[in-house]
Write a protein that binds this DNA or RNA. Structure first.
Length: 801
DNA sequence: GTAGGGTTAG
């Protein structure tokens, strides 16, 4: 069914091959961005025959030439207009005004300003018509202020048209306070003045002030028109206020504005972005003739509300033979998130191919959306190809590329891209930092994380809640719970994500009781918990091993807070039951759950059966995993280890050869430790460390009751084939080498912090507990799931992980 | 024979 509804007309031509289309894109992108303008000029040049050139010379300043000038300007024939203007007598302000307007309409702002100054130099007085054009051409505050002072000097500061233009200009250069000042000082305001004020508030993202403006203009009797409603609908989007949006929609109907296409697209957009996609759909269905913007708004509304199939269906409808409307760049941009949502790579590529064939590329926003789509569909190479071939990039494109690396677990790639970005003339924003911090959280090295925290401070970033949450997450994943807590405590406005993140931080560090206290603080502060809150709480229960509270939270999420348990909550409950050894109950929970079990669910059961050495159950879980996720390396390894533990070597060999057949390789275990700004990496049976490390390990091994092998023998250590098959001795596992290195290099009393890429093995867990007792040192080991705090011979995980 | 505010996009 899914495939059928994705059968877009876009697919008439096959999706382009990955290897063939990129060179072609480069060729296509050589087209000038001013292509359209040039064509127009070219055509107009054709019409400028030698006869008409003669005419230019003879009609200086005549009414005929003024009419011609107006004609050229109104039809966008700027070059011809300029030629005519050069030949004309320029004693009249009117002629200059027309020419300045022509330049402004073509977006040639600098040229318009230059012409205005030329006019002044030639002694022509600017009038009340000149300034609205010139003010529109001001793109910088300094220029704007200069023009404004001339306006005052010449006494046009009471002109309503001039003031309205000033209101918009000041907001565009980032000084909305100046817009307000102009508005306040106006002796008379008309509907456009109010609309200008309401629209500039939307422009600067202040929806609330815009809505106040909308309300006040009606109270003072100015009334409203279609433009007022468009701004008000935009304001509702900014404030995410569905109720206000509905009120504006009533005004639209009351004033008979619902047939206006701009109103139609704004209404659909508002409903779509305020959580009323059904209203958007109903309204859209009633529109008999939809233009491309209306279609795009509806496609965007579906895509933004996780209704990808509906958005694809919409694209097919817009291309219906009877009322065909061609998709444009915005259609494709709005459609790409639906591809990401479904991880529908083929449809994503189809859109890419269509864009290329239609000559839509190169296009900054479309290419950025493609980077985003390829990243989310797991095709990092394609995301990179698009990104590196982009003709122009901006901060959003860089952010999309960094996020693509993070989504594909290429954290070093994300960090390198972030470093490259610093060589560009862009100032990173909250999104840049949040994505980069997510990469540092995975790399999990506290010193590196601290450096980026320093950088955020250096950029003078006032710590917004978005970045602060990313920092809390990063510090907790790096093992520095204290730093995470400090940021949380200093955060003035904590949102739900802040609470969920700090609760999860304490959960992965094994402080269940603290999580529950934080949860009650959160409720007392008036926050409504969501699904993620319960993932944090249930994780805390499972990591700490508190079964009763776990069940209580599991039942209360729906009963007390109306949150339906999702697959991730069942996963946490399975971990919890597995920990408690209640394997039968765990199996029953899988059977009872109303959702289709995923490989993560069976993985929980597998982990539990491993811990309780139930091979039959492990085999059952593993079979389910293999059927859902054939290349799950972890599952093969876990099963092989279980067989090895009970000496079933034939089964070990069988699993290993299965892995080999599938081309799967075991993730080699390693431990990482930071010291003096350097990162030290240890592999199992690593022979490259210093003599002192092996010596310390030998001494400690003897003390904890394991037979140490003398360091000199380490270099000769060569596991036999049978030993390889049976798993290497844990005596020289990476975590122990890292621990010894840490103990030697740090001072007495200092905590040794180690990161491990895979789960800690039972032997090393037990050995590290003993080492913490003998050396009287706290050793913290973060594995792929949680942190183990070893102190005085005990571990914070209570020996279950 | 000239003016002002406005729709969908990463």
């Amino acid at each position: 069914m899914a495939k059928e509804s994705l059968n877009l007309r876009l697919q008439i031509a096959p999706p382009i091959s990955e290897h063939r289309y990129f060179p072609a894109i480069i060729q296509a992108s050589k087209k000038s961005p001013n292509h359209e303008l040039r064509i127009r000029h070219h055509n107009s040049r054709k019409s400028t025959t030698s006869a008409s050139r003669r005419e230019f010379r003879s009609v200086e300043g005549s009414i005929l030439s003024i009419k011609r000038l107006l004609y050229y300007v109104n039809n966008g024939c700027l070059e011809t207009a300029l030629q005519l203007f050069d030949k004309m007598g320029k004693s009249k302000t009117f002629v200059w005004n027309v020419m300045i307007r022509g330049l402004v309409d073509s977006g040639l702002f600098q040229e318009a300003i230059e012409m205005y100054y030329q006019m002044r130099i030639e002694g022509i007085e600017a009038d009340n018509f000149t300034f609205p054009f010139v003010i529109k051409a001001c793109v910088g505050l300094k220029e704007g202020k200069n023009v404004h002072s001339t306006v005052i000097k010449l006494g046009f500061d009471l002109d309503i048209y001039v003031c309205n233009a000033l209101i918009v200009m000041y907001a565009k250069v980032g000084c909305v306070e100046d817009s307000e000042r102009v508005f306040e000082r106006m002796p008379v305001r008309d509907l456009v003045s109010w609309n200008s004020m309401a629209s500039v508030y939307v422009l600067v993202g202040d929806g609330w002030s815009s809505l106040m403006c909308f309300e006040k203009m009606q109270r003072v009797g100015v009334g409203l028109d279609r433009i007022s409603c468009i701004s008000a609908l935009g304001a509702c989007v900014l404030e995410h206020r569905l109720l206000s949006g509905k009120e504006i929609f009533c005004q639209v109907l009351k004033n008979g504005l619902e047939l206006d296409p701009m109103i139609q697209s704004s209404v659909i957009d508002m409903f779509g972005k305020c959580g009323g996609v059904d209203y958007a759909e109903r309204f859209c269905d009633r529109i008999a003739e939809k233009n491309v913007v209306v279609w795009n708004s509806m496609i965007g509304a579906y895509a933004g509300n996780k209704k990808p199939f509906e958005s694809f269906a919409c694209v097919e409808m817009m291309q219906d033979a009877n009322s065909y409307m061609a998709p444009d760049t915005v259609t494709l941009i709005n459609l790409l998130p639906s591809c990401s949502n479904l991880r529908a790579l083929l449809q994503g590529k189809t859109i890419h191919g269509y864009a290329f064939r239609k000559g839509f590329l190169s296009h900054l926003v479309l290419e950025t959306a493609l980077v985003d789509m390829y990243g989310k569909c797991g095709r990092l190479v394609l995301a990179e190809s698009v990104f590196f071939r982009m003709k122009t990039r901006n901060l959003v494109s860089w952010n999309a590329m960094i996020a693509a690396y993070v989504q594909n677990s290429k954290d070093r790639g994300a960090i390198e891209t972030f470093r490259d970005l610093q060589l560009e003339p862009y100032v990173p924003d909250e999104i840049t930092f949040a994505s980069t911090l997510a990469a540092y959280a995975e790399i999990a090295l506290p010193k590196e994380g601290e450096q980026i925290h320093g950088l955020i401070c250096k950029f003078g970033f006032s710590l917004g809640v978005y970045v602060a949450n990313a920092l809390i997450h990063m510090y907790s994943k790096c093992g520095d719970l204290e730093a995470a807590r400090k940021i949380f405590d200093r955060l003035e406005f904590k949102d739900l994500v802040s609470w969920n993140t700090i609760i999860m931080a304490y959960a992965i560090h094994g402080s269940g009781a603290y999580c529950f206290r934080l949860f009650s603080d959160m409720i007392n502060e008036g926050h409504e918990p969501n699904g993620s809150t319960f993932v944090s709480l249930l994780s805390a229960c499972s990591i700490t091993g508190i079964v009763d509270e776990g069940w209580e939270f599991f039942y209360s999420m729906k009963r007390d807070y109306g949150v339906d348990p999702g697959i991730e909550h069942y996963g946490c409950m399975l971990d919890l039951l597995g920990r408690a050894g209640n394997l039968e109950r765990a199996k029953r929970l899988i059977e009872e759950m109303p959702l289709e079990p995923t490989s993560r669910i069976w993985g929980s059961l597998l982990a539990a059966s491993r811990h309780h050495r139930d091979i039959t159950l492990a085999e059952l879980a593993a079979n389910h995993i293999f059927s859902l996720d054939g290349d799950n390396t972890g599952c093969y390894v876990l099963l092989a280890n279980m067989y090895a533990e009970v000496g079933r070597w034939e089964d070990v060999e069988r699993v290993r050869s299965l892995m080999k057949k599938q081309g799967l390789k075991m993730t080699s275990s390693c431990s990482i430790l930071e010291h003096n700004g350097r990162t030290h990496k240890f592999k199992n049976h690593d022979r490259s460390q210093s003599y002192a490390v092996y010596e310390a390990l030998d001494v400690l091994s003897r003390k904890i009751g394991e037979n140490g092998v003398h360091c000199s023998s380490v270099s000769k250590f060569k596991p036999t084939e049978s030993l390889k098959a049976r798993g290497n001795s844990p005596m020289y596992h990476s975590v122990r080498l890292a621990t010894c290195f840490g103990l030697i290099k740090t001072t007495i009393g200092e905590t040794v912090l180690i990161r491990k890429n895979v789960r800690l093995c039972e032997d090393c867990h037990s050995a590290t507990k003993k080492i913490s007792l003998i050396t009287k040192r706290e050793i913290v080991v973060g594995d792929s799931k949680m942190y183990h705090h070893f102190k005085d011979g005990r571990c914070s995980c209570g020996d279950y992980w």
